[in-house]
Design a protein around this nucleic acid. Structure first.
Lengths: 142, 142
DNA sequence: GTACAATGATACAATTAGTACAATCAGGAT
DNA sequence: ATCCTGATTGTACTAATTGTATCATTGTAC
């Protein structure tokens, strides 16, 4: 029915545990609207098969999300996105989510052979460019 | 999966430490294409058994290669050749690749509702933590 | 014989997989 | 309706497989 395909892409060499990758990707799909409150997630077994992973690994990811009240897992029924979720996600969780995202980015950059200086410089530049673009938008809006 | 046989030939009388020989041979197999980025190496125990050597000796070799960013060892999962940009890609291309990665990261962070200050602060913190962890590793390695 | 580097032994931690179980629901038989 | 039965769901606990940390032993150079 309301079952989503939920196409996740795992990187088995990234250094991030699989269950963490699943948690992160579901969170971001919720953030960007690909998943909405009330949506049913695939069953632990279905998602596990699709990702070629043991279903307990998926169950672990679901448990973490459940404890964060982002999803609601119900034995014998299935797993659903919580109806009234992230507005009340705590500051701690919010911070952890950014931290995880940043870790992923930095690990990837190092894995690709970049150095600390290059990375921080590029982040500064990119943020600056983005900011300028926004300012320009505002000026035009006048 | 993509596990290679990785036939190494040790010389126990050469005077070169075993772990050094392992390091050298893996490096040269990477250089001549027998090993490619993304390949999974044998587990420390498997390779140790094959070479009739203690697995800590293999682990030591792996640690050296890991610190040199040639391989990536992941507790509970295995050891992989890191995916580095081909050495022949131009500086420009290299830069663009980091830029693209950074853009993705920043876009994602903004989508998740974080602000510029939070993002740059988190990047600084994460880089700092990583640096300190590495320094600690080096000290221990002495 | 002392010092130091190399190797080995042992115990540990993180991640993922295996197995058995419990809750829920759908369908039919009575 | 009520009860069974089987399928499907998530849960709990355990085992297996991985790399890590620490200290002991060995062997060689001085």
């Amino acid at each position: 029915m309301t079952e989503k395909k939920l196409t996740l892409r795992l990187d088995f060499h990234s250094g991030l545990p699989i269950y963490t990758q699943i948690v992160n990707q579901i969170q971001s799909q919720l953030a960007n609207g690909r998943l909405k409150p009330g949506d049913q997630l695939p069953t632990v077994r279905a998602l596990a098969q699709e990702l070629r992973v043991n279903f307990n690994t998926v169950a672990r990811a679901y448990r973490i999300l459940d404890e964060a009240r982002i999803i609601s897992t119900q034995q014998g029924r299935g797993t659903y996105i919580t109806e009234i979720p992230p507005p009340n996600i705590s500051e701690k969780l919010r911070n952890e989510s950014l931290e995880a995202l940043t870790q992923r980015f930095i690990n990837e950059a190092f894995r690709l052979g970049f150095f600390e200086k290059e990375i921080s410089q590029m982040v500064r530049d990119s943020l600056k460019v983005r900011k300028e673009a926004q300012n320009k938008q505002k000026e035009n809006a006048k």
